[in-house]
Design a binder for these strands. Structure first.
Length: 299
DNA sequence: ACGCCCGCCTGTAAGC
DNA sequence: TGCTTACAGGCGGGCG
């Protein structure tokens, strides 16, 4: 379940560890992880011989920019891990589907037991080098424009709550333009990119809002609280290097677990006392997934 | 437009 | 103890 904070933690470490490295070889052990390509060979050929220029992120997608203008896109799905190892001799974990070897030594391994995740190389909007960093005046936040040009496959994604700063008034307007349960909206990647089941529950607790409040029913104060809670909760989780739960197995680039799970107010805390009011945290199932909340603190 | 379900997957854990 | 079942849920697609 890596969500925005976990992917951002990976991005920050990748930026330090792999930028400037040249891809010597790529091996694919499970083609399902590169299913957008006609073959594993096709995927490999697009990567081999190219150097890594920078590492970006949009929602839950990692964007590894290469020196020829194409972008290696990585999504971890439910159980994906990206692991940086110094030596190829280190034992390979089960379900290691893709290995990228660098000319300078060391390798990057993509491990994903459930294969919900994927990797693919995007050639950009026209298959040519994307424009450097020109901004488009008006509506969408400028930061997303180059990314959307570089990776048209991700053009359906909404704003990134960490990268794309906006006024709470604008956010309130976006809420009012939709009708439906607020939790489902937060998790809708076409609305906001990067929030999943865990962080939507934490954000809603921090906002004092129930998961089933209708998005167009929020007062201006509530919308402002939700916006601030969204930005602050995600930022705090990034500071703590993301959440690792007992069953989930999120690991960072070095195989280490995150630290934010200890800060959780509601997620995976069914029956435990609310840290604010001591009433037990409630768990309900909606749309096939669990929602954790406090009946007293969230209205 | 929205809610809800399925299929895709494997590892873990609870239930019988 | 051993088998079966449920659950975890991101994402895309379908249906009502």
């Amino acid at each position: 379940m890596p969500e925005l904070p976990e992917v951002e933690t990976l991005r920050l470490d990748l930026a330090k560890e792999v930028v400037g490295r040249k891809i010597k070889a790529v091996s694919v052990a499970n083609g399902r992880s590169v299913r957008r390509h006609p073959s594993a060979k096709h995927f490999r050929a697009l990567l081999e011989g190219h150097s890594i220029k920078s590492v970006g992120r949009l929602g839950k997608y990692l964007l590894v920019a290469l020196d020829n203008g194409s972008t290696l896109v990585v999504h971890l799905g439910m159980s994906g891990q990206l692991l940086r190892v110094k030596s190829a001799k280190e034992p390979k974990p089960k379900h290691t589907h893709v290995v990228i070897t660098f000319t300078q030594g060391g390798e990057l391994r993509y491990v994903d037991p459930r294969t919900f995740g994927e990797m693919f190389v995007s050639l950009g909007a026209t298959g040519e080098k994307p424009a450097s960093s020109s901004s488009v005046n008006g509506a969408p936040p400028a930061a997303t424009v180059p990314i959307r040009q570089a990776v048209p496959e991700l053009s359906h994604l909404g704003f990134d709550p960490v990268e794309d700063v906006m006024s709470w008034e604008r956010f309130a307007l976006m809420l009012r333009s939709r009708h439906g349960a607020i939790k489902a909206l937060l998790m809708d990647q076409q609305f906001a990119a990067g929030i999943g089941n865990l962080y939507s529950d934490e954000i809603l607790f921090a906002s004092g809002l129930r998961y089933d409040r209708l998005s167009d029913s929020l007062s201006a104060t509530e919308a402002r609280r939700l916006y601030r809670a969204m930005v602050e909760t995600l930022a705090e989780a990034i500071k703590h290097r993301g959440s690792s739960l007992a069953d989930e197995q999120y690991r960072d680039l070095f195989g280490e677990i995150g630290d934010y799970q200890g800060q959780h107010q509601v997620y995976d805390r069914e029956g435990q006392p609310c840290r604010r009011c001591r009433n037990p945290i409630v768990r309900v199932r909606t749309g096939g997934r669990s929602t954790f909340y406090c009946e007293h603190c969230q209205v």
